[in-house]
Amino acid sequence: MKILGILQLIFLCLSCFSHGDIDRSWSRTDTEIDASFGSAAAQRGALSQHEAIADWKEKIDASINLPPQESIPLLGEAVNKLAKKNIFQVEERIEVYDQARDLLLSTPGHAEYYRDRINEARLKMENSRGDAGDYPYYKNKLREVILYDFPIFEQLPSPETVRVLGEFLFDERGYVRVDNPKDENELFKMIAQGPVFGRAARSLLALPLEHKPVVDTRYPSYTNPEDILPWRQWIEEIKAGKRTFRFVGDPTEYDLNGPASQEKLTRLAMNRERDEERAVGHNRPSSAPEAESAVTRIGKPSTIAGILAGCALVAAAVWYFLRGRKTA
């Protein structure tokens, strides 16, 4: 059991380094594939891969006629496996991957399905606590579901996925504080309890989101809750209607329910413009022309009064002069 635990810990750490989407930048020829596998080419080489992908394509085509509870796990498994370079290197993996992912994204509940699987596995583990026979089994099952399902989230850029991962950001069940992430015993103790907030943050980081709240690094340390505060603040602002989000290559602005309404986009744009004007106003120094203009404006009433008073004096003098002539 100790060896199994160590292997699971190693697998978890390696899985943290995966990124969403498929690597479209490369593929290998059949000769290169067979050469790389050597004696294992018969089981994992080019011919085996072509046959496996043809089999997957047949299953994906047939999934259109399946209910969501059957099509989602099938398509999720296809997406998860076709995205792994250590399983498939042939070029047609990209086309079949895109077909599976597009079908999965078009299925309502594609992310909620995996959320429910994770929550159900946790509930079973918690209900079996104290049972010496069942508890270790369900604890391992929870770990397996977390390890398997979060990489699938990373392949599904959608508002539903962001919403589900946003919920998991605040799920600290099973959390054990790790002050030193290099302490394998403490880290393994926490992983064994299956907290998901760190995995949710890593999956959000792996999604092709524009303007992420953190630097896009492939090796984030999301061990303790304070490590994911930027992500929590980001999702709270979306919930509050203060911001939207979009995916790379997709100009659509989303909130957690789907494409954002034009009314919301207009309001956000006006708020941004107002905030920018306020920021500029706070930082603008007083200028001499503006000060002079203010002084001039302040002095205008007294100047006008002086002119009127002068005119009155002139009029009085003229009247007095004319009156004097008449008297003479």
Rank of each mutant, 00 (worst) to 15 (best):
F88I: 02
G258Q: 01
K182M: 09
R325F: 08
A200G: 04
P159G: 07
L169T: 08
R243V: 00
E32D: 15
V162W: 02
K139S: 15
L207W: 04
E186Q: 13
K189Q: 14
T296M: 08
D216E: 13
E226W: 13
D98F: 08
D255E: 07
N271R: 14
G133T: 12
E273H: 07
K239F: 01
S302Q: 09
E186R: 13
C16M: 11
P151D: 02
L147I: 08
I60M: 03
D216Q: 08
A78R: 01
T107S: 10
I53T: 02
A201P: 07
H110I: 08
S18Y: 05
D227W: 12
R274Q: 14
D34R: 03
L74T: 04
G109C: 05
S36M: 10
Y135E: 15
D149I: 00
P251W: 00
P157G: 09
R173E: 11
R28T: 14
W234K: 06
F17D: 09
A132I: 09
L187R: 14
Q155K: 06
S293Q: 14
N257R: 13
E292W: 10
S203L: 04
S293D: 13
D134V: 06
K182P: 00
I238H: 03
I6V: 14
F245I: 01
P301W: 07
G38K: 05
N271M: 13
G130F: 06
Y113M: 06
A42G: 06
E263V: 11
L229K: 15
K189G: 04
H282E: 15
D98L: 08
G133D: 13
K264V: 08
D55T: 10
W56K: 04
L156M: 13
V248E: 13
L74Y: 06
R323P: 03
D21P: 07
K242V: 00
I191W: 15
D23A: 04
V79I: 03
P285W: 04
K239I: 01
A305Q: 09
G281Q: 14
V248D: 10
Q89D: 08
R143K: 06
V162R: 04
A294L: 09
N185R: 11
S261A: 03
E172R: 15
F88P: 01
I118Q: 05
P251T: 00
R274Y: 13
D149F: 06
I307A: 13
Y135R: 12
H211L: 10
R24M: 09
K300W: 14
A260N: 06
A83I: 00
S221M: 12
D30Y: 08
D98N: 12
P195C: 07
E292T: 14
V178D: 09
E172A: 10
L256H: 05
P259W: 01
P159F: 01
A132S: 13
Q262R: 14
L156F: 03
R284P: 04
C13K: 15
V214W: 06
R325P: 04
G241V: 00
R44N: 09
P68D: 05
